[in-house]
Design a protein around this nucleic acid. Structure first.
Lengths: 207, 207, 207, 207
DNA sequence: CATGAATGAGCTTTCATTCAT
DNA sequence: AATGAATGAAAGCTCATTCAT
C-alpha cells in the first residue's frame, strides 16, 4: 500500500467491479469531451453530464479532477493495446513484412482515434508526476516493440539503420504525423494517400 | 515590417514604438511562463508579474488574454525567421548540401527553443480563429521553403521522393522530434547524438 | 402562476420550490440594497451578503447580475398585484367611488414601498431587452385597469375626459408622485396631507 | 472659502474664463453621453473622448468623476433657465393665460430635452450631498415660479385649488410626464397630441 | 496647460470540491 | 451509493485616478 501507491485512481467505493466499470465509463466519455474542449476547458459539471454520473457520485470514484485525465489515458491505452493484440502482427517472420504490417495497423488506429493522439500530446502536461512516469513507461514499452523488429532486421541485414531504438522512436513519432500535422495536409491529400505516403516514407527510412 | 504587421493585437496606447517594444516584451516573457505552466494554467496576474507590466497597463496593450498567446506566437516567428535568414542557407547550389544545411540549422534552432516548439503544438488550440489562420499560413510558407529544395533535387535526380510537399511536411515535423519526444531519449543519447541521428534519418528519407 | 412564470431567470438548481423560495428571497433583499445604493452601485458581493446566499450559490439561481434586477422587478410586481387584489376594488359599482378607492389603495401601497417605485423608474434602463418588454406589458395592463374605470365613468357622464387611456396613464404617473418628488414636500406636509391632496387632485382631474 | 465651499467644481487651472469654458464644454458633451449610457455606464475614457479633452487634462478641471455629473446638472440648468427667460412668460397679466403659456413653453422645452429630464431623475442619486442640496434648491425655486402664478389666480378666484405649492409641485411633475412615461404612449399618440392632452389636463386640474 | 502611460483595487463570473440528505 | 446544493478562492477584465514628461 506504501510502495504501490498511486498506480491507479483511488476511490471511496468498496465494490471493485463497480469501480472498474465506472472508471472505464468516465475515461471513455471524458476522452470525447477533452478532445473537443480540452482538459482545462472542461468543467466538472460538463464531465458529470458527459459521463452521466452526478457530480457528487463522481467524487466517490476520484479524488481530484486530474484523476479524470488519468482515467482517460488509462482507457486510451486499454483500447489501443487491445486493438493491437487482435491482429497477429508479431507472428510474421520476415522483419520487413512485419514492420510494414505493424506500421499500417498503427496508422489505421491513429487515424481512427485522431483526436485522442493529439489529446495525449496536449494534455500530458496536466498529468500528476507519478502517473506521468507510468505513462512514459508504457510508451517506452511500445517503442521497444518496434525496436525489437528493427533489431532483428538489422541482424538479418534487411534494415540499414545505425541505432534501432532511436529509429523506433522516430517511427512511433511519425505514426502520429496525421494527428499533429494533419490540418496542413487536409484538402491536398485524401486520407488513403496520407497513409500510403507515410508508410512509404517510414519503410524507406529503414532500408 | 513596421507598417503592415500587428493588425491582430490592438492596443489603447498611441505610441507605435512603445507598442512594439511592449508587445515583444510580453511575447518573450509570457512564452517562458507558458512553457512552464501552459497557457490556461497561467493567470493574468502571473503574466503581469512575469512581464513586469502591471495588470491594468497590460490591458492597454492587449484586449483579451488570447492576445498574449498571439504575441507569444508572433515573438517566436520573429526570432525564428530572423535566425534562419541570417545564415545564407538559400545561397547553396547543391540541393543535398542545401537540405543538409537547412535541416542542421533548424535542428539547432529547435534545440535552443525547445519548449517553444512544444508550446506551439500544445497551445495553438487556444488561438483565435483569425490568428490561427495567419499562423498556419506562416507554417505553410515555411514548409514550402523545404518543398522548393526537394523539387530542385528531384529534378536533378539527387532526391528520390514521390511527393515533395508531403516529404517537406514530414521533414519539418521530424525537426520538432526532439521537442515533442525528447523525454524518451534523454539519458540514452547526448544532445549532439540526437541531432546527428535526426539529420541522418532525414537525409536518408529523401535519397 | 406556478407553471407559467419564471421563464426569464434560469437557474442550475433542479428543485422548483427551492428556486421559487430563493428567487423571492433574492428579489426582496436585493430590492432594499438597490434602493439604497442603486443597481450599478451594488456589487455581487454585497448582494450575496444582503441575501445571505454565498456568491457561488447565488449564481446557481441566476446567470448574470441583470437577473437579480429582474427578480427585484418580479418580487415587486408580485407583492403589488397581490396587495391590490386583496381589497375588492373592482367590485364597487359607482365609477367615481371605484376610482377613489383604487387611487387611495394605490397611494397607500406606493407610500409603503416608496423606494421601490423610484427604483423601478431609475433602474429599468438596466433590464435586459426581453424582460423590459414583459415589464412594460405588465405596466400597460395595470394602466388598463384604470382605463376601464374611466371609460365606464365617461359613458355614464360622471367623468369628463377626452382620452381615457391617456388620463389613466397620467393617474398612474401621479400616484408615483410621492416617490419621485417627495423630497420637495417633506417638511411642509405630513404623509396624510400628501395623500389627501393627491387624491383630491386626481379626482378633480377627471370630473 | 470655508463657508462657500463646494458651491462649484474645483479646478487646478488658474484662468477663470478657461475654467468656465471647459466646464460648460464638459457639461454639455457629457450630458449627451450620460443620456445614452448612464452615469455609471460611462467611463472617464469615454467622457474624455466625448468632450475632446484628454483624460489628464480633464482632471485639471475636476477632482472626481462626480464633478462631471455636477457639471452636467449645471449646464442643464443654465440652458433651461436661459431658454425660459427668453420668452416673456412672466409679463402676462391674466393668471390662466400666464399658466397656460408657462406650461406650454415648459412642455416644449422638456420635449426637446427629453433624455435630459429623465437623466436628471435617474442620476441625481449619484450627486454628492452638498451639490444635491443646491440642485433641490434650484428646483424649489422653479416650483415657486408656478406657485406664484397659482396664488395670484387663487386670489382672483380663477383657480380653484387648496394648496398652491402642492399644486405647483404637481404641475412641474406632470410636465416631465412625457420624459418618464413617454414609452407607454409612443405609437398611440403623436407628439403634438401628447402635449395638447397634457396642457388640457394640467389646466383642468386648477380650474 | 496638456498629454497619455501607468497603477491597482475592485468588479462579475466560474469552478473544483465538500457535505447534508 | 447517489444526489445536487453550497462554498469561496481565484480567474479575466475594467476603470477612476495619478504623475512624469
Amino acid at each position: 500500500m506504501a510502495e504501490e501507491d498511486r498506480k491507479t485512481v483511488r476511490s471511496q467505493v468498496k465494490d471493485p467491479d463497480l469501480i472498474r466499470k465506472r472508471h472505464l465509463q468516465i475515461g471513455i466519455k471524458a476522452s470525447k469531451l477533452f478532445a473537443k474542449k480540452g482538459y482545462a476547458g472542461s468543467s466538472m459539471r460538463e464531465i458529470s453530464k458527459a459521463t452521466g454520473i452526478t457530480i457528487g457520485n463522481l467524487y466517490d470514484y476520484i479524488t481530484k479532477k486530474e484523476d479524470v485525465l488519468c482515467l482517460v489515458f488509462d482507457a486510451f491505452y486499454s483500447t489501443w493495446t487491445e486493438n493491437l493484440k487482435k491482429h497477429g502482427v508479431f507472428d510474421i517472420e520476415d522483419p520487413a513484412e512485419q514492420l510494414r504490417a505493424a506500421v499500417r495497423k498503427m496508422l489505421e488506429l491513429v487515424h481512427n482515434y485522431q483526436d485522442m493522439a493529439l489529446l495525449m500530446y496536449r494534455e500530458s502536461k496536466h498529468l500528476p508526476k507519478d502517473f506521468l512516469k507510468i505513462t512514459l513507461q508504457k510508451e517506452t514499452e511500445f517503442i521497444e516493440c518496434f525496436e525489437k523488429i528493427l533489431k532483428k532486421g538489422k541482424e538479418q541485414k534487411v534494415f540499414n539503420i545505425s541505432d534501432p531504438f532511436f529509429a523506433a522512436s522516430m517511427i512511433v513519432y511519425q505514426i502520429s504525423f496525421e494527428s499533429l500535422r494533419g490540418w496542413s495536409l487536409k484538402g491536398r491529400y485524401t486520407d488513403e494517400e496520407i497513409m500510403t505516403y507515410l508508410e512509404e516514407i517510414i519503410m524507406k527510412s529503414v532500408t
